[in-house]
């Protein structure tokens, strides 16, 4: 499961990082928190080594920095979106060690050594990930703000289903359920789409699960 997510070599990240190896980005970074700006300069920072989209990075961060803010404000990976910032909307969903999480509800310092994949990391050699292509094909979005979180969530969902995880709508939790539309809807309930593109999101996920065009 990890390899499937972590060992991509996306082209898009090269826009942000020109060199190989561990890169220290702290001095080039803006403060992560509007409400902490006044205190930022005097606060001790901690050095955090993160692996983001298969790239090892070192950051000097205020310990308060969420993983979401580290990605967006310090690494320039703005594909991951900040919606509610309290774990309810799923716009900030990223994949950590093969599992989807809300990056707004975790601190970057807690992820030293973890393999983090963002929407930018799903592209492989310039080609869209099959889930990205399916969202385009099925028109699984309108405004697009929730889409990176939806896609990261959907990619991890398929891995969870492949691993046999049950869900709330699984009639018998001791079985490995088929990925019905009801299963997809339940498993995607952590990602809200205010444009309500849900039917097409479900169709895109179903298509990839059934081995549709990549």
């Amino acid at each position: 499961m990890e390899r499937e997510f972590a060992l991509r070599s996306p082209i898009s990240r090269r826009r942000f990082f020109g060199t190989a190896g561990v890169t220290t980005l702290a001095l080039a970074s803006p403060p992560a928190f509007a409400d902490a700006t006044a205190q930022t300069s005097s606060l001790p920072t901690v050095n955090v080594r993160l692996t983001v989209n298969a790239r090892q990075l070192a950051l000097d961060l205020d310990p308060r920095t969420t993983l979401l803010d580290a990605l967006r404000e310090h690494l320039g990976l703005t594909g991951t979106k900040k919606g509610c910032d309290q774990g309810q909307c799923g716009a900030c969903t990223v994949i950590v060690n093969g599992q989807r999480i809300n990056s707004c509800l975790t601190l970057a310092v807690m992820h030293a050594g973890d393999e983090i994949t963002t929407i930018e990391g799903l592209v492989e050699d310039g080609d869209l990930h099959p889930m990205q292509a399916a969202f385009v094909r099925h028109d699984g979005l309108q405004c697009g703000y929730c889409t990176p979180g939806q896609i990261c969530s959907a990619v991890a969902l398929l891995a969870e289903h492949k691993a046999g995880w049950p869900s709330h709508v699984t009639a018998d939790v001791a079985t490995r359920p088929a990925l019905t539309d009801a299963e997809i809807a339940e498993r995607m309930s952590g990602n809200i789409c205010r444009c309500s593109a849900y039917p097409n999101i479900v169709a895109a996920i179903r298509d990839v699960n059934e081995g549709g065009r990549a």
Binding site: G87, I101, P166, H168, A174, G190
Partner: peptide
């Protein structure tokens, strides 16, 4: 998702799966 829990204590799997979202349960 642990198969021992699912077989012997399905109540526990059901209860956990009824709470939060997968993203939250993963953390």
């Amino acid at each position: 998702a642990d198969m021992r829990v699912r077989r012997l204590y399905p109540l526990l799997s059901q209860a956990i799966l009824a709470g939060a979202s997968t993203q939250l349960r993963n953390k």
